[in-house]
Amino acid sequence: MFKTERKQGWFPEFTELNWRFWSFVILLIMSLGALTWFPVTGTFEGYTDPFYSPTLLVIPLIAAFRLSCYAYRKDYYRHVFKHPQACATGIREGKNGETRGYSGEKGFFALNNYHRYFLYVGIAILPFFYYDFGVSLFYEPGYFVLRLGSILLIVNALLLTLWTISCHAFRHVFVRGQLDCFSCSLGGKTMKKLYDGQSFLNRYHEQFAFISLIIVVGVDLYIRALMVGLPVDFTFLKFAI
């Protein structure tokens, strides 16, 4: 049986001199401090901060959705923790010495295995981002206003949607990714088309994940910049309705 030298579990990280890991811990502590000292103040001139309601209510779940995402997993295992140094799924042995292959991510105590449940929360809060976009368009009574901030809000909402629906768990749960045979099941052809469409988006899951992260942080900084009075807002369209 092939075995790697890797140590199992998260605890060895604390005993090793790994500047990437420890610097990440420092960043986490500083971020929590910053979140406490600079709470999200909500709305400004019709713009709603993407970290504000309802995200604020479910922020631990949303954070867990990001952290357990396959794209982020790949990146933090390889580049932040450098652990494991190399991947190999060993052949698992059964009780009678027979070999068993990979049997899915079913471990109860692994947070990453709950990705599909965090996905439900992710889907539930998506409509609010479109609502916030709508609010930003009509915040001046009697007028329709299209500003730079509104465009950023809709780009943010679209990228979050693309990131959510291109998720690996989404494929498993909603487009019958769990099936072994499409032609053997009812409505198999239609489902296969949906599955292929989703799989096309899934190829770009990593891109959506990171670009949407940049946009979320960017929109938050942008709204904070507006709040302190930086002249970064531009109106493109304004007419009475």
Partner: peptide
């Protein structure tokens, strides 16, 4: 991230 956070502090 460090630069942004330090400035926040």
């Amino acid at each position: 991230s460090f630069l942004m956070l330090i400035m926040a502090f």
